[in-house]
Amino acid sequence: MRTRARPADRLRALQDALAGNARSPALLRSEPPVGAQESADVARLLNAGCAILASSVLADSSMEHYRGSFENKAMFVPPIVSTLALIASLHGASDRSARAERRRDAIYALSAAAAAAGFGFHLYNVGKRDGGFCWENFFYAAPIGAPWALLLSGTLGVAAERVRDTRPGGIPHIFGMAAGRLLAGLTSAGLLGTVGEVWLLHFRGAFQDPFMYLPVTLPPVGAGLLASAALSSKPKKRPLTRFWMKLVTVLGLAGMGFHIYGVHRNMGGWRNWSQNVLNGPPIPAPPSFTGLGLAGLAALRLLEGPKNE
């Protein structure tokens, strides 16, 4: 017999889960078991999301660090690591096996670590400038939110390997936690972090185009829906959340379209590409939402159980 967990307990459980120190059997019990094929499919979906995140990081960090003249040798790290992460993700996305792959695992862990170091570098870069941690430096020094996408790619990639490792008929889990919940929570947090970065950059752009409000309004709703799915105690169909994740997936691609248009809107348009792709809106940035949308869909598959209707 099950009793409904009180919201506060569930929240604590999730917090513990996210902190990585939980071994809550209640959390594990609440998810449906999956077959080998299903776990591999979910992992492949996650790998696809990671691939998109990694390619966004690859293009964005290459451009931005080229703009920064690769002044510091460490600035070569994100393009290299995201290339590896992209290769690993493409490999994973086409891999139907139900076993984790050690090299993929290592690359994902490496990219998460590199991203964490990147935060440190970027924070240091903001703080060391005249004026310190002021708005101007958050606008123009190393973008504080940029390593976030690489961190997500790495973390979700490690998670994908764990899901893939699920024994047939078992419940997917990650370091002892229910994988569906954890992924939903992680993706929800990932969306919110990305929204924070977008908000800073669109505030920087004075929200001069009303469409600039979309990526700071739609994804937070998705993050809320996912979080509520993660906190919910029983598996059920969540058409709204699923729809919203698809919306976020499409939003990322649409954002890229808007940014391509935005570059054209700068002086000289595409003829002046050598300036405008650097000074205009970053074209590779919005697909981060597409990667997260796919991760959200993967999480939902675990939470909802196999497609049997």
Partner: peptide, 18 residues
């Protein structure tokens, strides 16, 4: 930073400063 009358983002048909 100087308050200055040149655009830091697009405005209608006017381009941001290059």
């Amino acid at each position: 930073s100087t308050p200055i009358a040149t655009l830091s983002a697009p405005r209608g048909l006017a381009h941001p400063c290059v």
